[in-house]
């Protein structure tokens, strides 16, 4: 079963409040994310980023407000039911592996949902895991285990994909594979929500950025505009990603934030320079 464009779901938080033992983690957050958007949530530790995403899969229940995924009210569903729509990749997802081969572990989620093997093979291929598909996950190095866990969620072909620090601990090649896989999901119409401290990665995948601080939204802007604007990032405690910094320093046209856009703009500069 291949993914058809438009299979994503809109995600909506409406005036959501949440508290841990009386300490407010979210103080009235409202966000409307149309289907097919790739959203990055940024903010310092303790800002409420992970709390916000955990509400999507029903692992936490809001104290006030409403969370919905497409036409589902999250409050009415258990996490294992929501898994049919929302794929959630945890920060330490490598700890969830337990099957004797990579392929079997990746197939665990799809089997629970009654899906076929198509998603399993696609996810293994995308993340470069086909060569080691018959290995034991624990015979692979730690970064590869993290990719196995990600593959296990991609294979469930969810309409909404939530990733918590997906690039932490990954090597360059793994990171590039994750970026490519997320871009492909975005083209398919999947809604992607990424929580990350890795701004260079965020610049590569995100269309929209929301910054949280102390449980409230302090910025909500298109990725290109926010990440290219050092003056806007500074009060949020953020620095522009390297490609954006290079682009700004050289005054490149189009204010690129992605490495390849930056390279293309640089090429253009040289071209015009030699042509003059």
């Amino acid at each position: 079963m291949s993914a058809a464009p438009g299979r994503g779901h809109a995600v909506r938080w409406e005036a959501v409040r949440f508290a841990y033992d009386g300490v407010e983690a979210l103080r009235g957050v409202s966000l409307d994310v149309p289907a097919g958007t790739t959203l990055a949530i940024l903010g310092p530790n303790g800002a409420g980023k992970t709390t916000l995403t955990r509400l999507l899969i029903g692992l936490l229940r809001p104290r006030a407000g409403r969370v919905s995924v497409g036409d589902w009210d999250v409050a009415a569903k258990r996490p294992d039911e929501l898994a049919a729509r929302v794929g959630y990749v945890f920060q330490h997802a490598d700890q969830q592996l337990f099957e004797r081969t990579v392929r079997r572990d990746v197939a665990f989620g799809p089997q629970r949902l009654g899906l076929g093997d198509g998603g399993v093979e696609r996810a293994l291929g995308e993340l470069g895991l086909l060569g080691g598909a018959e290995s034991h996950p624990y015979d692979l190095p730690a970064p590869a285990r993290k990719l196995v866990a990600l593959a296990g969620v991609l294979a469930m072909e969810p309409g909404v994909l939530v990733l918590d620090e997906p690039t932490a601990g990954l090597d360059r090649a793994g990171r590039d594979r994750v970026i490519a896989a997320l871009r492909r999901r975005s083209v398919d119409g999947v809604t992607v929500v990424v929580v990350s401290h890795d701004l260079a990665f965020v610049a590569e995948v995100a269309e929209r950025i929301v910054v949280l601080r102390e449980g409230v939204v302090v910025a909500d802007a298109p990725a290109g505009r926010l990440l290219g604007d050092a003056a806007a990032l500074a009060p949020l405690g953020l620095e522009p990603p390297p490609a954006a910094a290079v682009g700004a320093a050289l005054g490149l046209p189009g204010a690129p934030i992605r490495v390849e856009d930056c390279a293309a703009a640089l090429g253009g500069v040289r071209w015009r320079g030699t042509g003059a």
């Binding site: 692992l59 996490p79 700890q95 629970r112």
Partner: peptide, 18 residues
């Protein structure tokens, strides 16, 4: 903490606790 993470993660992979 890890037990909690594993319980959460497997539920998100469609494992029903009940």
């Amino acid at each position: 903490a890890r037990v909690r993470q594993i319980v959460d993660a497997q539920q998100c992979r469609g494992l029903r606790l009940g």
